[in-house]
């Protein structure tokens, strides 16, 4: 048996799904951000696996951009959490329910 690209891709899909599920069920924004990181990592794995299979470096280059985006997102997201927690003692997404119609 040989490890084909499909194996990596299935691993990536599983990781992506776990991230998506976590983002939807957890209420702590920090954990939600970590779930976003999981999803982005899953995509990275896909890119690298595709690049490997296609013999193309572009897959790896794409990972760089994802990395930058992930960093920028985390910075802004954590700043948001800090800003909100100044005002509120606890920060779970359920407390954030002023906005309902």
């Amino acid at each position: 048996m040989e490890i084909t690209a499909n194996w990596y891709l299935i691993l990536s899909a599983a990781l992506f799904s776990i991230g998506a599920i976590g983002l939807l069920i957890r209420r702590n924004p920090l954990v939600m951000f970590m779930c976003v990181e999981l999803m982005l990592n899953a995509v990275n794995l896909s890119f690298v696996a595709f690049g490997d299979r296609l013999g193309d470096i572009a897959g790896q280059v794409s990972v760089f951009f994802v990395l930058v985006v992930a960093a920028a997102e985390v910075v802004v997201g954590l700043a948001l959490v800090v800003a909100i927690s100044r005002r509120r003692a606890t920060t779970t997404a359920d407390d954030l329910s002023v906005l309902r119609g």
């Binding site: 991230g19 998506a20 983002l23 924004p29 995509v43 896909s46 997201g77 909100i84 997404a93």
Partner: peptide
Amino acid sequence: IKYFVLGAFSSAFFLYGIAMIYG
């Protein structure tokens, strides 16, 4: 923060789609 979380969520989907197209 709502926009952020859901936006990041959707961006991840979009990016995953890009990976698939690339593949």
